[in-house]
């Protein structure tokens, strides 16, 4: 079942095209990562999905409903963790959650929401005294109050320490396992890789890469890097390599096999490959590669080498 459906969606602010003809779908009970650089259009897409903004063209459906026309039904079934939103600074975390329960139909007990977000110990602390990461957790507690079927998390772990971040990951995994659909934006690519089963990467309002996380990464090359022995010329290596200074980098679909080939070759010659590092393709590599590809070329027109073949974006 499709929980979120985006069809040829566009939104502009004056001359700035924030979202440009994108399409994707998110299956119920999955975690979907919407990635991209700052200003790529992720937050605008979320704001269109939750009905904060009206699309210029195209349509969105959340749980089969229009977030603008069926606002009350949609809001009753979604939890929203905005990238930026304030609190009443003089209320405690516990009072904030209690007050939000008044606005939320069929809300969880405040203690349960605070526990899920890992904030029980801070229930009596005033919001103005919470750290940035603790405020994000309070944000999560409010988003989870209504036991949502769909959860929108816009950069949920920004400002959190590594332990808190991993705790939030556990909460998100647990929610997805219980059938909650999660749409996540994040700048922590490890987070997206850990949590999401599907992804879309946006650039300048368009989706430039999308699909199943594992398949997308499997289609990318891994890399083997090592310090080139001083007695060896790059041309003598058994595999094509890029050499910068003394660092040789071999890109390969199967980096383990490439490493075995290189070690066998070195062993035959009695050489040691110092600093040998084998890395499977990661989301970070893909992201950086896209960032390079989409830098504006000298003629001023953006290059879009990874643009999918279909017009208007892609289906996840």
């Amino acid at each position: 079942m499709t929980a979120i459906q985006v069809n040829r969606l566009s939104k502009s602010y004056g001359k700035f095209q924030a979202v440009d003809d994108i399409s994707f779908e998110v299956e119920a009970g999955t975690v979907f990562a919407l990635l991209g650089r700052n200003g790529a259009g992720k937050t605008t897409t979320i704001e269109l999905l939750i009905g904060f903004q009206k699309p210029d063209t195209g349509s969105v459906r959340v749980l089969g409903l229009d977030p603008i026309k069926d606002r009350a039904q949609v809001r009753g079934n979604v939890g929203i963790m905005l990238q930026e939103a304030g609190f009443f600074p003089d209320l405690t975390a516990g009072q904030t959650v209690e007050i939000w329960r008044d606005f939320t139909p069929a809300a969880r007990p405040a203690s349960e929401a605070l526990e899920l977000a890992g904030l029980t110990a801070k229930a009596k602390t005033k919001v103005r005294q919470l750290s940035g990461g603790e405020k994000r957790r309070l944000d999560l507690a409010l988003a989870l109050l209504g036991r949502p079927d769909v959860l929108f998390l816009d950069e949920p772990t920004t400002g959190m320490d590594p332990e808190a971040r991993r705790n939030i990951w556990e909460v998100v995994r647990d929610l997805a396992a219980r059938g909650t659909t999660v749409l996540l934006t994040t700048h922590y690519l490890e987070e997206a890789q850990q949590l999401a089963t599907n992804l879309a990467i946006m650039d300048r309002g368009e989706i430039v890469v999308d699909g199943d996380m594992a398949e997308t990464l499997a289609a990318r090359v891994g890399r083997v890097s090592f310090e080139l022995p001083s007695v060896i010329d790059p041309g003598e290596l058994p595999l094509p390599a890029t050499v910068r200074g003394r660092l040789a980098v071999v890109q390969a679909a199967d980096p383990d096999l490439a490493a075995q080939t290189l070690l066998g070759w070195a062993s035959e010659r009695g050489l040691r490959l110092r600093g040998l590092e084998v890395r499977a393709a990661s989301l970070e590599d893909l992201f950086l590669e896209l960032a390079q590809n989409h830098e504006t070329p000298p003629n001023g027109a953006p290059a879009r080498s990874d643009r999918p073949g279909r017009s208007g974006g892609a289906r996840a």
Partner: peptide, 12 residues
Amino acid sequence: MLVLKRLRASGL
């Protein structure tokens, strides 16, 4: 303070 935005996200 972005409190109005948060109240709006609450479903109100």
